[in-house]
Design a protein around this nucleic acid. Structure first.
Lengths: 192, 192
DNA sequence: TTTATAAGTCTACAGTCGTATACTTGTGCG
DNA sequence: CGCACAAGTATACGACTGTAGACTTATAAA
């Protein structure tokens, strides 16, 4: 139990955003309710509405904040000399069983069934990641290759964490990295 | 408007299953309501409950039926001598803009945020596809490689159809095939 | 200490959800 | 034709959804 917060609009706003991030990551856009989000921040549902205007705007702000700090595609990975292997290792590590699932992708995947959430997610991903990754690629079809990188990341995360395929959940991390690395390498470094 | 069906339990059951398949593919497990499904079959919501016991059991039966006939991993593709290229072509074709999105994967992706639906989906995918694909692979780590094939298929479908990434939606199909083919080939044919 | 105002809450509404109980109606058989 | 039984419907319940309007309360300045 965190100590009761004194009346502080900025701190309360931040607490709501934090609670919303966890709720959306756990249950997706449709599955997370305003009352649940509000309770997590120690306030009432109405305050959430008043602060963010609507659930949709709250979701947009959460996604924006979460995607501001990339994980799999961190600048460290992107500037590495072994980007394929580093991406594979980062992805496998971040989707391990007990890992904190508070990634922007997690929220996006769990919310993709809602058209409104999908639209917001697309805008955000195209504003940030696409430019980021496509800019780091050389050769042709950089936009398409970057998009397929996202697809592989998203699909792997989905099958491993959400669906929970046994073959991915129980595999040795090193094995998964060895299988993923050449795929990422091929996409990132371009055709041989 | 289809002509009114005479009282026929088997036909009604089939109509409900068909309507449910469309509804789940469009909105996912949580997003599709029993009343909507019932209306699509020209009956009331209660009849759906009576015939299938619960929404969860209905979903399981729908997924089971839909996944009985694989599309991307059809026997034709699996027996091809150019499996990587054929998988890529099948995937790109099936996720084209106007394509019928009535695949089992579509339902699964839109429902993965619901734990109950995810559990059912995992069971189904492991019962059918995993065995199917892993059996067609040679070499080591066949289960893991098959699972990553699913991940790539799922991620591509998600990013192209659900999120609607511009780079994938607007790309020339042939370009996408050329990028995906070596990835599938590497997974299917095994490490070089 | 009083008070203006921002911070936060209460109550309510119109809607949806899945499903349980009780009911009506159509249809094939004798 | 009549009737039994299956096929299908009506109504309702309790819980949940996002959010609108009116309300209370804490706090910082005067």
């Amino acid at each position: 139990m965190p100590e009761a917060r004194r009346r502080d609009a900025a701190a309360t706003r931040a607490a709501i955003l934090d609670s919303a991030r966890k709720a959306f990551a756990r249950a997706g856009y449709d599955g997370a309710g305003l009352r649940e989000i509000a309770a997590g921040a120690g306030v009432t549902a109405m305050l959430v509405s008043r602060y963010f205007g609507s659930k949709e705007k709250l979701f947009a702000e959460v996604l924006q904040g979460t995607m501001a700090t990339p994980t799999v595609l961190s600048s460290q990975v992107l500037s590495s000399s072994r980007r394929g292997a580093d991406m594979a290792a980062a992805l496998v590590g971040l989707t391990a069983r007990g890992a904190v699932p508070l990634d922007g992708f997690q929220i996006l995947l769990r919310s993709a069934s809602s058209p409104r959430a999908a639209r917001i997610g697309r805008a955000e991903i195209e504003k940030r990641y696409s430019r980021l990754l496509a800019g780091a690629l050389k050769g042709r079809r950089t936009a398409e290759r970057a998009a397929i990188v996202f697809a592989l990341v998203a699909g792997f995360q989905m099958m491993r964490q959400m669906i929970g395929l046994t073959a991915l959940a129980d595999a040795k991390p090193k094995d998964l990295e060895r299988l993923l690395a050449p795929l990422f390498a091929q996409l990132v470094e371009g055709p041989l």
